[in-house]
Amino acid sequence: MNDILIKKTTAFFKETFGAEPQKVVLSPGRINIIGEHIDYNDGYVLPAAIDKIICFAFEKSNSDTSRIIAIDLDDEFEIDVTDSMELTDNVWTNYIRGVVNQLKINDFEFEGFNCVFSSNIPVGSGLSSSAALECGFLFGINELFNLNIKPVDIALIGQSAEHWVGINCGIMDQFSSVMGLENKVIKIDCKTLEFEYHNADFIDYSLILFDSNVKHSLMTSAYNERREQCEEGIAIIKNNFPEITSFRDCKEQHVLELQKVMSANVFKRCLFVVKEINRVKLACEALDNGKIEVLGQLMFETHEGLSTDYEVSCAELDMIVDTLKKEEAVVGSRLMGGGFGGCTINLIKKGHEEGIKKKLSALYFDAFGIELKIYDVKIGNGTSLYNNN
């Protein structure tokens, strides 16, 4: 599938600009195996890059003017790289403008360029197409103009660009898009950005995403509210236990002892965060020991916590997970991403995938009148230069 995308993108570039691109970049989406809503709570996350990508083609324009074309949207825009960047109503262009803005703020020297891109990452499904867009675009500019930006800094600049757009994301999405390795998950320390790879040997299992095909409007307001509740909770914990500096220092007992001085919601949010940080550690141990069914059970526990304690699930996602939990061939399932819609991530024993897809799709349509979208994914490499040789 990616070969087709690469050929389409490079052919479009040649047709538009009359020459082969000077650089071709592949930038992946990401999944998160476990560790949800704790990237902004000083926790650990366990993401991986996937084999769904954005393909970019670049050349220098030999002027200050840059032309950027989104093939899939049949849309384009031009900027003068010497101008100051401002947000516009055309949302996708803001991610590009945000990266250019960050490069200018950080005094990198570059000139105009031409860029086209196309993607097979499903948009709006929680696979971080925006991070792939920011980081792939930045990676290409870095290569085109020899800016010598390190991979970790590409992720950080991408995150800053998204903040400029107005989305206060953690570092996980950009980091996993840039730093991913085939058949590896990355345990990222969201406090220090230290990271380590763990084998993701899913040889007997398939990773399948079931997209609920819904996106409830609560998402942004609820996300900000959860962050505020967690900040309130950790302040109470620190006040009562001076030795604690962040959620990662907490045990469940610390939170339980403070239940009476926290609001009900703050208590539930804190309890989820502390449990989820521990689940990431246990998930790494399970992967290191090849115990995929243990990992799957942790995924089920995460979903339960996201649904009842963090309260970011919805009827559609709960139905998917509850249905799959009854299937012996499904060893793990949970909502992935911010919640209130989007995908579940599921580990299914090989040989059973098609039957489960068919059964779940029918039950889901009967329940909600909505077509389930299904994506088979494999763990792939992070953002890279494509070499046709």
Rank of each mutant, 00 (worst) to 15 (best):
F17G: 12
E20M: 13
D75T: 08
P21T: 09
I34A: 03
F77D: 06
N41G: 00
I53Y: 14
R67M: 05
F58T: 08
E36H: 03
F77N: 07
A57N: 11
F58A: 09
E78L: 11
L26E: 14
R30V: 05
F12W: 03
I31F: 08
D75Q: 06
A57I: 11
K52A: 06
I68Y: 00
I71F: 08
V81G: 12
E36K: 03
P47C: 03
G43T: 02
F56S: 05
E59P: 00
C55Y: 02
Y40H: 10
I38V: 15
G29F: 03
I71T: 07
I68D: 01
A11G: 09
D72Y: 13
A49G: 10
D74V: 02
D39M: 01
K60D: 04
E76A: 14
K23I: 15
L73H: 12
E36D: 13
H37N: 02
D72T: 11
S66K: 01
I38W: 01
I54S: 07
N62I: 01
D72P: 08
R67N: 09
I53M: 10
P28T: 04
S63D: 14
T16W: 01
E20W: 02
I34Y: 02
T65E: 05
C55V: 15
I31Y: 07
L26Q: 13
S66H: 04
K14T: 15
T65A: 02
V25C: 12
L73D: 06
P21F: 09
S61K: 05
E76C: 10
F13G: 14
S63V: 06
S61Q: 06
V25H: 10
A19S: 14
C55Q: 03
F12M: 01
K60R: 13
L26R: 14
D80N: 15
K52C: 03
F12E: 02
G43C: 04
F12Y: 15
I33Q: 00
D51H: 11
T10A: 09
K52V: 02
I33L: 14
Y44I: 02
E59S: 15
D42I: 02
A19R: 15
D39N: 01
K60T: 07
I69C: 12
A48R: 06
V81Y: 08
I69E: 14
S66T: 05
A48W: 04
E76F: 14
T82H: 06
I38T: 09
Y40R: 07
T65P: 00
D80E: 05
G35V: 04
G18Y: 09
D74C: 03
T82G: 00
A11Y: 10
T16S: 13
D39L: 00
